[in-house]
């Protein structure tokens, strides 16, 4: 779980790849409100597997940091909103848009009962 620094021309941010079990530990390790600014939560679906992604900014070196963990469809994803306080809003949003089972999610936070379920998902479509 080494931090991969930015590569010129390929990506301009560093990456830490981890697993779903260790993601909370890892974030607790790196997150410090005075030195690291929390940017946001994102998810990614390539058709076979999903990924949860947390974006941070290291204030001293001004480098954007991505912490990501792959998981299978339907797997329960831990929430980090007790470590990073403002994370809950975007976690609920991502949970709605991708149909991810994140701890403490609120149903229909961004979508409406009439809108299509999990619109940003590629594989393993949910009903309707």
């Amino acid at each position: 779980m080494k931090e991969l620094p930015p590569e010129k021309g390929i990506r301009n941010f560093s990456v830490i790849e981890t697993t779903l079990e260790k993601i909370r530990e890892k974030i607790r390790e790196i997150y410090d409100p005075k030195k690291v600014h929390y940017i946001g939560v994102d998810a990614y679906d390539d058709g076979n597997k999903m990924e949860i992604r947390y974006w941070f900014l290291k204030k001293e070196s001004n480098v954007v940091l991505l912490v990501k963990a792959p998981f299978d469809y339907g797997e329960k994803v831990p929430s980090i909103s007790d470590i990073v306080k403002p994370a809950f809003v975007q976690e609920w949003e991502i949970a709605d848009l991708f149909g991810i089972n994140i701890e403490g999610r609120v149903e229909n936070f961004f979508l409406t009962p009439e809108s299509p379920r999990a619109p940003l998902r590629r594989g393993d479509k949910l009903g309707k």
């Binding site: 940017i39 946001g40 994102d42 974006w55 403002p86 809950f88 809003v89 975007q90 949003e93």
Partner: peptide, 12 residues
């Protein structure tokens, strides 16, 4: 992915 400023300011 678009993370807008208000989305960061809403939790507080």
């Amino acid at each position: 992915r678009i993370r807008t400023p208000t989305l960061a300011n809403i939790p507080i």
